[in-house]
Design a protein around this nucleic acid. Structure first.
Length: 223
DNA sequence: GCGTGATCATAA
DNA sequence: TTATGATCACGC
């Protein structure tokens, strides 16, 4: 399998992403010497990993942006035949300690969403995986309005956690940013280390962006 | 278990 | 049809 080194500049990263825009998943897999899985049931995240390899992402599974030195996060985003996001987008784990909950400015969500390279790809079930095409990349930084929207949601949700009410959080909360389970299974447990959490065990959760938010990103920038 | 990459499956 | 809650795989 070919090894791709990290891009040294934003420009180089964008050029790499533009170079694969329009090709199929089969073509990219061939370039990287990878076999395409039959089904995505047991290979969730496969395409995201293929993209990381082919663009030279280097953060591995560390809680920081994929292109570490550039501070840019990579996100693949499945789109339907109308170009709309098919799924919400996972951002990061919901940390349950006082420092992580103390301010938006120092939060992992803000860090991950400082700058994102979105790579849309066709994901309608009627198209065989190998024939699905990769779309044009969108390099995005949140606007002031978007930042405020995300911050408001983050604050509301984190306030609940700080008050010891994490188990009252529902996925329906948050206009654009939501908290949902992120675990191996529904019986998974993690410790709530925030000061009002009384060290209770709770289901691990993550932050996700709703499709309405990501749609505004990818359809805005494309025309 | 934690954090990464996400999508599945069914209730609403 | 859509969104919530659940789940799959992997490195460490």
């Amino acid at each position: 399998m070919m090894n791709v080194s990290p891009p040294l500049t934003r420009k180089e990263l964008i050029e790499r992403a533009n170079a694969i825009a329009g090709i199929t998943i089969l073509q990219l897999a061939n370039m990287m010497g990878k076999n395409i899985p039959e089904s995505s049931i047991h290979t969730k995240g496969w395409f995201g990993n293929l993209l990381e390899l082919s663009l030279g992402a280097n953060a591995a599974n560390a809680p920081e942006p994929d292109f570490t030195s550039l501070g840019i996060e990579l996100k693949s985003i499945p789109i339907d035949t109308n170009g709309k996001p098919k799924e919400s987008t996972y951002i990061c784990v919901t940390q349950l300690n006082p420092i992580a909950l103390s301010s938006w400015e120092s939060s992992l969500v803000k860090c991950k969403l400082t700058e994102v390279l979105w790579i849309p790809f066709e994901a309608n079930k009627n198209t065989p995986i190998p024939l699905r095409r990769i779309g044009s990349p969108v390099l995005w930084k949140p606007s002031t309005t978007q930042k405020n929207q995300l911050k408001d949601d983050w604050q509301e949700l984190c306030d609940m956690i700080v008050l010891g009410n994490i188990d009252q959080i529902s996925s329906s909360m948050g206009k654009y940013l939501q908290i949902r389970p992120k675990a191996a299974h529904s019986k998974s447990l993690t410790r709530d280390n925030n000061q009002s959490g009384k060290n209770k065990l709770t289901l691990p959760r993550g932050f996700y962006l709703r499709p309405s938010f990501t749609d505004s990103i990818i359809s805005h920038t494309n025309h």
